[in-house]
Design a protein around this nucleic acid. Sequence first.
DNA 1: CTGAATGCAAAGACTTTGCATCAGC
DNA 2: GCTGATGCAAAGTCTTTGCATTCAG
Lengths: 132, 132
Amino acid sequence: MRSSSTDLAIIELLTAQEKHLTSLEIYEAVRRRLPAVNQSTIYRSLDRLAQLGKVSVSDMGTGAAVYEIVGDHMHHHLVCTRCEKVITLEHKDAANFFSQILDKQDFEVHTNHLILFGLCGECRKALEMEDE
Amino acid sequence: MRSSSTDLAIIELLTAQEKHLTSLEIYEAVRRRLPAVNQSTIYRSLDRLAQLGKVSVSDMGTGAAVYEIVGDHMHHHLVCTRCEKVITLEHKDAANFFSQILDKQDFEVHTNHLILFGLCGECRKALEMEDE
DNA sequence: CTGAATGCAAAGACTTTGCATCAGC
DNA sequence: GCTGATGCAAAGTCTTTGCATTCAG
């Protein structure tokens, strides 16, 4: 049916990719398959998919939201603010932290896609060199 | 000196408040003291203060960034997505998580103001009632 | 005088919305 | 025909930028 053509294209795109994409990146990629697609359709489709819990939306503070498929294997991202590298953090490494919060603060964290900014090892070393 | 009048007004405002404010809220509050102040001045001032590490900027996914004073006592926020309540999470409760990431992933988290979304205890109970 | 901060208005980036149209049931 | 998805264009929101002006030192 027509209703799912855009949704489907997005789902397949995000499933094939393993990283988060901006709406613009998604728009450009989907347009290769559906040349007539409009950007507002992408936004509407993404909203729908987010509502259904099929994609996650995060704001990385860059002005543009990023979208990612919600798979069975939940994970988070460590973003290096110097080299922009994105490192995956397995959910199990955060699960303990989240359950501690539930115990101590009686608060159930729902964030299904945590993004932490900082410095990766290489950039830390590079910065140390610079300081000398 | 003139250079600090806006900066100072913002610092004092954010110090008096204990929560994060949007640039618009800051603009409107500062305008009560400095009626002629321009919104772009607020943005430039906030940039400056963020650069100096005096305020933290976070994106709560609402489209508008929120700003908060960086005090000596670092903390994070748990935001209930149902009742909008904001709970403070002491940094020491997150420090362990961050140092684990440093050990395991060789990544130094710089996020000085983490915002986690989820459900507070009251809302969890309320939702359980609804389900019955 | 010089450099930094400001006001103002315009531009920019990202996203949403109103309305007519179109596909599928 | 009805319902939901789409295209198109306009508007909206938040933020940035260029340029002339103003202030402090």
